[in-house]
């Protein structure tokens, strides 16, 4: 996943991918992968808000910009691994599948789960971003200077 050596970098990366993924895409991949691990729900999916902060002048004092909706859920697999899902929006299934994926990524099945769930989500996000970047690049202004009179 992430080349960084910071502790938890890999887990942080997959949790971030899961949080930002469209709920329908994750649900689709989940069905395709046929995953159905035995688990207990530690915290049932719960919808709430997070206050998003900005900085004055982009770099100065923090201020409250406004809230966003998120949904969180925690599960424990029968094998003991605990997974936490925190996802954007209000889709409870999204949060639960994120939590289960997080738990599975800590098991010996991690490689398969990464290939079936995380990598396709990451690639889709990269494609979306690349498409927007390419459209933006096409609207970049090329200036050319007209010959100016000397007097």
């Amino acid at each position: 996943m992430d080349g960084s050596n910071a502790p938890n970098a890999a887990r942080k990366a997959w949790l971030s991918v899961l949080a930002k993924a469209p709920a329908a895409h994750l649900a689709d991949l989940w069905i395709k992968a046929g995953l159905d691990p035995a688990h207990d729900v530690l915290r049932a999916p719960e919808i709430g808000a997070v206050m998003v902060r900005g900085r004055a002048g982009a770099v100065g004092a923090p201020f409250n910009l406004g809230e966003m909706t998120i949904t969180r859920c925690s599960v424990r697999l029968a094998t003991g691994e605990v997974g936490h899902g925190h996802v954007q929006g209000r889709d409870k299934n999204h949060a639960k599948q994120a939590a289960l994926t997080d738990a599975l990524m800590q098991t010996s099945e991690a490689k398969a789960v990464e290939a079936q769930i995380i990598t396709p989500l990451l690639k889709a996000a990269e494609r979306r971003r690349a498409t927007r970047a390419a459209k933006a690049a096409a609207t970049k202004v090329d200036f050319f200077t007209m010959v100016r009179g000397e007097d």
Partner: peptide, 8 residues
């Protein structure tokens, strides 16, 4: 309210 974000 689950909390506040890091400043963007």
């Amino acid at each position: 309210r689950f909390g506040g974000s890091e400043p963007l």
